[in-house]
Simulated scan of single mutants.
Amino acid sequence: MESGLKGQIVLITGAAKGIGKATALAFAREGAQLALLDIDEAGLAEVKAEAEAIGVSVAIAKTDLSTEQGINRGIDAVLSATGGQVDILVNNVGSGSVRRFEELTDSDWDATMQLNFMSYVRTCRKLLPVLRQRAKPVIINNASDLARQPEPVPVDYSASKAAVLALTKGLARAEGPLIRVNAVAPGPIWTPFWTKPGGFADTMSTFHGRPPQEAVEYEMSLRQLPLGRLGKPEEVANVIVFLASDLASFVTSAVWGVDGGSIRSIV
């Protein structure tokens, strides 16, 4: 089936690793041009090289997506390379760690919301005037299954992702019928988000009092995933590309779970 993505310009935040990287390469295989933002300059360079080897043009900018200044600077940098044009925005940047509610300070809550939620608000605000000028504009927000089915930890992460879903629904109504706005809600996906020092695996190890890999396996057993495993970044990227494509032309204001069956609700 024809995706209609060839020649489209896709801006992805948090594109250096994990789901962001897999999404960039998936769009590249569809012939889309890329504009990639991340604080990890080396990781961005690697993604750029891999995507250019596929045969598409790639603009990158290192920037801090947790601040308004960083977002504006990064977007301005890649727009200068795309002729000021973007067709598809994928808000993907995010971070989190496993901490009990009583351990979270106001600063912790603020840092989580600035990166995981306000970056989406600011990126949308910056790019909406650009997207409104395009023929088939799309926004896709990366949320989480924890937005719809929170666990005891990490509650700040869950709250930030629930806010992303509210933003998705509100923008879909405000910007229809021109701009389609959807969200993906991944479950546990084995990415550097989990494996990096201080990431989910390490902090889950502390929380459960087990070695990192064992702690993750124990957490998965508690969640009782029907598929019985963590997902792969490419499995989320495939759904993001579908939602951006002509194949999903009647899909907006939707939340697509890519979670191994973790969500038990029928609504």
Rank of each mutant, 00 (worst) to 15 (best):
K196Q: 14
V138S: 09
A172P: 06
V86L: 07
T13P: 03
A15Q: 01
G74L: 00
S3W: 14
L115T: 01
E175T: 11
T23N: 09
L44V: 11
A166I: 05
N142L: 08
R134K: 12
I263V: 11
V155A: 13
L222T: 08
G74R: 00
S249N: 13
A201Q: 01
E151D: 05
S3K: 12
H208S: 13
P150V: 05
T63G: 05
I240P: 01
V153F: 06
L104T: 06
W190E: 12
D246C: 14
D156C: 03
A15W: 00
W190R: 13
S158I: 05
A77W: 03
M220P: 01
I19T: 05
T23Q: 10
V216I: 15
R134C: 09
A51L: 11
L79S: 06
L34R: 02
S57G: 14
V258H: 04
K62A: 15
K17D: 06
A35C: 12
I266Y: 11
L230P: 00
E151F: 03
I60A: 13
A26I: 08
S144R: 02
V86T: 05
Q8E: 12
L65C: 02
L243S: 06
S265R: 10
M118S: 08
A35W: 01
Q114A: 12
A42L: 13
T67Q: 14
E102C: 13
A248C: 13
A49F: 14
